[in-house]
């Protein structure tokens, strides 16, 4: 077998596998778009769900999802940033650094239902927050924390050491180096990580199903102790229990809205990553 033949074979294999992945992805997108597209109209975005989801829209579900996401990001981002900066800029012992890194990466792989279970036991029952928006935000914040931290950490670690040395040689303290060099450089990592974390939170169902959300009777929460309706729970309940074809179509419609939300966040994160990274290199 000639070398050229082997190379062509490898390339063909790669093209096939990539094509297969793209095909599956396109299939999912097309399926959701075709089945849910019919449900989308202005009323779907502006009205509340009625008749067990057979009529009306997903206004409060969208608001609830956004509320959980924004709350989780507002809480998770500072924690993730502090963790990433501590680990990269202040911990000098290689063993401790490795240990913390392993912990963050492991947390990223923990099944989300465990976050939900432990979060509910601790925040919901022990601290008395119950099934509420607050419990959901706390659980999601902890859940997306490693996603944000890994992204921020990778951005910080990509900063060439010579910048730190040049700033340190001018007599800047570690915090001054962080503030003037490290943070501006890893801004794209912060934005990317936050958006990816938000996308993860937006797609999450298991962790918030029994801790923060309610299917019916809930609108926009008036207090942090109120539960919220979310798109994820709405889709799950409609898909599992509805028999009316109109309800099923609305579930697909809600799925399409959620999918668009997640894709928009991922697309935004990619745009920011490119832009901010170029800005720093300029």
């Amino acid at each position: 077998m000639t070398r050229g033949f082997l190379e062509k074979g490898v390339l063909a294999g790669l093209v096939f596998m990539t094509g297969f992945a793209v095909f599956i992805f396109a299939l999912v997108l097309a399926e959701v778009a075709v089945r849910g597209g019919g449900a989308l109209n202005a009323g779907f975005f502006l009205e509340e769900a009625r008749d067990f989801g057979a009529a009306g829209g997903v206004r409060y579900q969208m608001e609830g999802t956004l509320l959980l996401m924004v709350g989780a990001a507002a809480l998770g981002l500072p924690l993730a940033l502090a963790g990433a900066l501590f680990q990269t800029e202040y911990v000098d012992a290689p063993g401790l650094k490795r240990g913390l890194r392993l912990l963050v990466y492991s947390m990223n792989g923990v099944p989300t239902i465990l976050f939900g279970l432990l979060g509910y036991l601790f925040f919901g029952i022990t601290l008395g927050a119950g099934v509420s928006w607050l419990t959901g935000v706390l659980i999601l914040a902890i859940m997306i924390l490693p996603t944000i931290q890994v992204s921020v950490q990778e951005a910080i670690e990509a900063l060439p050491e010579q910048y730190r040395e040049a700033a340190g040689a001018l007599g800047l303290s570690r915090w001054q180096v962080v503030r003037s060099i490290v943070l501006p450089h890893c801004l794209y990592g912060i934005v990317t990580g936050t958006l990816l974390g938000l996308a993860r939170a937006a797609g999450e169902t298991a962790a918030i199903l029994f801790t923060a959300t309610a299917f019916s009777g809930a609108r926009f929460p008036e207090a942090m102790s109120d539960p919220v309706p979310t798109l994820q729970t709405h889709i799950l309940v409609l898909a599992q229990e509805a028999l009316n074809p109109r309800t099923i179509e609305n579930a697909w419609g809600a799925g399409l809205v959620l999918l668009c939300l997640v894709f928009s966040l991922i697309a935004l994160s990619l745009v920011f990553r490119g832009r901010l990274s170029m800005e720093f290199e300029r």
């Binding site: 060439p160 010579q162 040049a166 700033a167 001018l170 007599g171 300029r282």
Partner: peptide
């Protein structure tokens, strides 16, 4: 930090911060 202000160090390869010439000069 005070020691390093007293003992300035110039490296083999100059490292410019991604800022203007003026901002680089007065960076420290």
């Amino acid at each position: 930090c005070r020691l390093r202000r007293k003992v300035g160090m110039i490296f083999q390869t100059p490292c410019m911060f991604p800022k203007s010439i003026f901002e680089n000069v007065i960076f420290g």
